[in-house]
Design a protein around this nucleic acid. Sequence first.
DNA 1: TTGTAGGCGTTATCAG
DNA 2: CTGATAACGCCTACAA
Lengths: 340, 340
Amino acid sequence: MSTRKPRPTQTGRVTLSEIAERVGTSAITVSRVLNTPHLVSEELRTQIEGVIAELGYMPNRAARALARARSDSVAVLIPSLSNTVFTQLLEGVRDVLNRAGYRTLIGDTRYSPEEEESLLRAYLEHSPDGILITGFDQTAATRELLNRSRVPVVHMMEMTDGDAYSVGLEQFDAGRAITRHLLERGYRRIGFLGAQLDPRVLERLAGYRAALHDAGVNYPVGELLDSTPSSIGLGATLLDKLLRQAPQTDALFCCNDDLALGVLFECQRRGIRVPQQLAVAGFNDLAPAAWVHPALTTIATPRYEIGHTAAEMLLQLMKGEKPEPAKKDLGFSLVVREST
Amino acid sequence: MSTRKPRPTQTGRVTLSEIAERVGTSAITVSRVLNTPHLVSEELRTQIEGVIAELGYMPNRAARALARARSDSVAVLIPSLSNTVFTQLLEGVRDVLNRAGYRTLIGDTRYSPEEEESLLRAYLEHSPDGILITGFDQTAATRELLNRSRVPVVHMMEMTDGDAYSVGLEQFDAGRAITRHLLERGYRRIGFLGAQLDPRVLERLAGYRAALHDAGVNYPVGELLDSTPSSIGLGATLLDKLLRQAPQTDALFCCNDDLALGVLFECQRRGIRVPQQLAVAGFNDLAPAAWVHPALTTIATPRYEIGHTAAEMLLQLMKGEKPEPAKKDLGFSLVVREST
DNA sequence: TTGTAGGCGTTATCAG
DNA sequence: CTGATAACGCCTACAA
């Protein structure tokens, strides 16, 4: 029994060996109490558990990760932390992953594929067991990194061809659906307000154009695109611009609720009656949409469920299972309220 | 030269030894190229850098953390991810910490000290180099954990006595300030709407009461407290309740902008003129406050700056420096708009 | 059911 | 400036 006496550790934290020494057993047995308790005799186990509690032992994740070659962590890349669309997505993700014992490394890409690439590079150093990423707008290098890392990946928010795993909705269809709703209501000079111009917004724009086209309507003067981030203030600004550029517009599809709220508030300020003089539709169905006056017609998107489902799919992949189907379309719903 | 040939690793990832072998040097030298390049000769360095790039080498953080006994990560505990107050706080935190090379482990406590304790327990396993935590409402066990871990901690959002490091604002003073504003405007039957009832809300309530008391006003029937989470919808509900309970109320201080917006929208719906029939004040100055109609009087709180400053303070602590002063009051400002 | 040996990938230490 | 050696704390594999 040449047991080297374990000295206090570098960090001052209690280690398995110290516990083992106290109990008069070996580190591996203490490890078993933590990971496979059924493999340890009742007696030893309760004794060890006592000392663990007494000493306030706390496993060292770095050591565990190194030994097991997995980290029990998942990297989650979203465009923005200040957009509730993505924080709700995150909540769905975390409710699933935390329960399953995973930590999430959250990265916000600021809507930039380059930033996304650099975040991914950084997070791969942590050997994540899985990756959740927003959309399909990755740089070539990002794709390369994802492939070479051999870590399971699930894409969120959009659907696509390809053979990637994904959970989302058809942004194109949603944009078309709400535009059709406006057409059905009898509006014809239907404008579009777009900001940020990320791929999902562009899909919605394409859906809007398709709906108009299908209806034999053409209203290019009503399109206003701005690549700066969405905000309520920008909605107000864009409305002002639009009314100069195309005063005859009778309905407006805003690429998200923030813009739409800005438009609504600006209409209130100017005394423009909604929907009588101008109908307004948004996208996402954020919390204020149901409460503003008039209440906002919009597309409800299942953010929480997308996060939840994507995380579940990733869990399967991390277990080595093949999720079926590989793509889940969680749909959307048109919520007609007073503003159209 | 009994160099064991390094086999492909467990994870399939390139390691320092493999690079070393390729170059005909040792792992430690490769490590130096990464960490202290000035200690390696120009020639060897460029050669090694070439192979690193060629093979797409990626350091293993777990191994590094284990060897260095620090993780380059910081745990950040906030009450909620779906409240923009805290996501803005987070952005301030991350802008500083990411730049300094730290990762953030984000935990949302759901406003529960018990949940906070369990998150802290979990995150301590990662050996964070520092901890940012919201407020001072910790369980005894949490305090014990923080002390024993000997990890630097900075508290955010509130000020307090004690000797803890903190960056925040005096919630009491802010609540008192906006109430005084209402008093100055001539309102006397000033109600208070509170939700969630976390410590910061209770401080604001205390400030409200103090202001009334100082003015010789007493209006207990106007206080409505609800421990469920804040939301626009709850604001509408509480207004309804309040108008039954205290119809003579002439002004309302809502503990945050969400409630205030709900109140405003409900007033619009009912045709209650703001501020003529009822003045409404909020707290935080969230984005919509400036744009709703009438625009909302509120208290602007420096969330981003608090996160930023707290992170800088933590950085100092992690370097072993003593930040001066230990408590930073970043203040608030009264933003008077149309609703009062 | 328990323990021994050895390694995970990196870095600190100290020698050359 | 470079390298050999020995950790870091835990776990896998195998043996007893």
